[in-house]
Amino acid sequence: MSTQMLSYTNLNTPIHRLTGVTKLIFFILWALTAMIIYDTRCLLVMLVLSLIIFRMSRVPFQQYSFVLYLILVFFVINQVAIFLFSPLYGVELYGSQHDIVHIAGRYTLTWEQLFYQFNVALKYAVVIPIALLFLLVTDPSEFASSLNRIGVSYKIAYSVAIALRYIPDVQQDFQNIAFSAQARGIDISRKEKLGKRLKNVISILMPLILTSVDRIEKISTAMELRGFGRNNKRTWYKSRPFQKGDYAALVLVIMVAVVSFAVTFADGSRFYNIFQ
Rank of each mutant, 00 (worst) to 15 (best):
R55A: 05
G105S: 13
T9Q: 04
Y89Q: 13
Q113W: 12
A125R: 06
I274K: 07
M1P: 01
K244G: 00
G245I: 13
F261D: 03
I82N: 07
L114V: 13
S145F: 02
A181C: 06
Q171G: 07
F61T: 08
W236P: 03
Q4I: 11
L44Q: 11
G195I: 07
F261R: 10
P168I: 03
A81K: 12
P140Q: 03
R215Q: 13
Q171T: 10
I274A: 14
Q113T: 12
I167T: 06
D39M: 08
I28D: 05
A34P: 13
S260W: 07
F143D: 01
I15P: 02
Q276E: 11
F275Y: 13
L132K: 07
L18R: 04
G95P: 09
I186G: 01
Y38P: 02
A249W: 07
H16E: 01
D246L: 13
T3C: 00
Y124G: 04
V160G: 00
T221C: 07
H98F: 09
D173L: 10
S146H: 03
K199L: 01
G195Y: 13
A262E: 08
T22F: 07
L164D: 00
L136A: 03
M46P: 10
K193W: 00
T110I: 09
T108N: 11
T3S: 01
D169L: 15
Y247A: 11
V170P: 06
S86C: 06
Y107G: 01
A125K: 09
V170K: 11
I103F: 08
D187K: 14
T40G: 14
A34S: 14
S153W: 07
L208M: 12
A144V: 00
T13K: 12
M56V: 12
Q276G: 15
I156N: 01
L198Y: 05
Y69L: 12
